[in-house]
Simulated assay, not measured.
Amino acid sequence: MDQQADTAGPATGQGRKLTVVVVGLAAVVVAMLCAFALPAINSGPHGLPAGVTGPQQSTTAVSEALRGDAWDVTVYDDEAGLKAAVQDREVMGGIALAPGRVTAYTATAGGPQAAAALSSAATAIAGQQQADVTVTDLKPFTEDDPKGAGFASATLPIIFGGMFPAVILSRLFTGHSGLRLRLTGGIAFALVAGFAVTAFLQYGTGSLDGDYLLTSLGMSLGMAALVTTLLGLESLIGMAGFGLGAVVIMLLGNPLSGFASGPHWLPDGWATLGQLLPPGAAGSLLRANAFFDGTGAGAAVLTLAGWVVFGLALMLVADRRGARAAVPRPASTG
């Protein structure tokens, strides 16, 4: 009887462990589904900044028609002011009204879905007024990549450009003695990879159209924000820390980044969170540098720099903790 009880004990423990693992993995899968499905289901214009100009009666009617959670309408004095606002990223696009004519000014590179929604709104207004409609794209994607496929694909090199070097460097240069080598390797990789990825997208596929040096530095900063944060978490907590960081990046940072659509295509709270995480900030910085001559890049730069500082702070704490542990204790004289 005792032998049977001893055998049943470990078996029961193993069964419980297996149950916990199965339930935990299922929970992770459901969490992944929620993270990717919910933003897609709830996507659409949310407080999308748009401009309108024209006769006061017409602009008032359009502003009333677009009033709600979807649009944030600003009235401009003339078409020149509206076009400048679009190019300066004050608004995502705008509608100019004139007798017998409706013109939609869009910026597809700022967000293709927003440009399409604005074009549809202008077409509907023109139909109501029995006017001609014209769509002018002030900031399109490049001629070689008019749909922006190359730009949208940059999200994976940025994310995995932070994750892969962090885990590889952590395995190759272990312990306190390898901490500074991990940091040096991570920063060096971010610089090299940032310039290489930008060169491929700008000169290989023609997907980007901006100052190469500025765009490359922005790409490198995005990767550096990820790799330093992950290295810092791993140095301080171990692989559990790396796993935690990777989960946040993949389950929150990636789907909430608004990389392809722009942040205004997500609900307000989700969009704000996404822009505070490295993938979202990196996407906004790449968009600003590649298509808008750096306009609107300041917030993204500060966000990514903050993540770099956070990662460095974690590594500094880990370095000092490791240094204290390495100091030999004085021999007991008792």
Rank of each mutant, 00 (worst) to 15 (best):
T272Y: 09
L244M: 14
G296F: 02
L172R: 12
Q129V: 07
A80M: 05
T174M: 08
L172I: 14
T59F: 11
V22S: 12
S63T: 14
V327F: 10
D132T: 13
R329W: 04
A240V: 05
A116S: 11
L251K: 08
A70G: 07
S119R: 04
D132M: 07
L18A: 15
F200P: 06
V308Q: 04
T136W: 01
V248S: 12
G241R: 01
F189V: 12
A37F: 13
P146L: 08
I95D: 01
V135Q: 05
A246V: 10
Q113Y: 09
A124C: 05
G262Q: 04
T108D: 02
G162T: 03
L251I: 10
I249K: 04
S170V: 09
V91G: 07
L231D: 06
L118F: 01
A104S: 11
V28P: 02
L25P: 01
P165E: 09
I168E: 05
K83A: 15
A300S: 13
P267F: 14
G274H: 03
N42W: 13
V227D: 07
L233R: 03
F160P: 00
V28Y: 05
A96F: 02
T53E: 04
G47P: 00
P112D: 01
M315W: 01
A80I: 02
L231Y: 08
E79M: 05
G232T: 04
T272I: 11
F242A: 13
S120A: 15
Q202S: 13
L66Y: 10
A323V: 00
P140N: 06
V317L: 13
E79H: 05
Q202A: 14
P45S: 15
T134V: 10
N42C: 08
G162H: 03
Q4V: 08
A240F: 08
A121P: 00
N42R: 13
Q3R: 11
A271T: 04
T106Y: 01
S284W: 00
A85D: 02
I159R: 03
T7A: 15
Y105H: 08
L118R: 01
M250R: 05
D2K: 09
R16Q: 13
S43A: 15
A122L: 06
T106Q: 01
V133N: 08
A188T: 12
D2N: 11
E79R: 07
A116Q: 10
V327E: 12
A318L: 06
A61H: 04
T53K: 04
G322T: 05
G241L: 04
A313C: 10
G9D: 10
R101H: 13
V22E: 03
G258E: 05
V247Y: 07
G204A: 14
A98R: 07
G283F: 09
A70L: 04
Q275L: 05
A116Y: 02
L25K: 04
A121C: 07
L201M: 14
G161L: 04
L118C: 08
A11G: 07
Q14Y: 11
V102T: 11
E64M: 12
R180H: 13
G245V: 06
F292P: 00
L169C: 08
V29I: 15
A318M: 06
R16F: 10
D88A: 15
R16L: 14
V197K: 03
L66K: 05
P112R: 01
G298K: 02
L183Q: 09
P99N: 10
G24Q: 07
G54D: 03
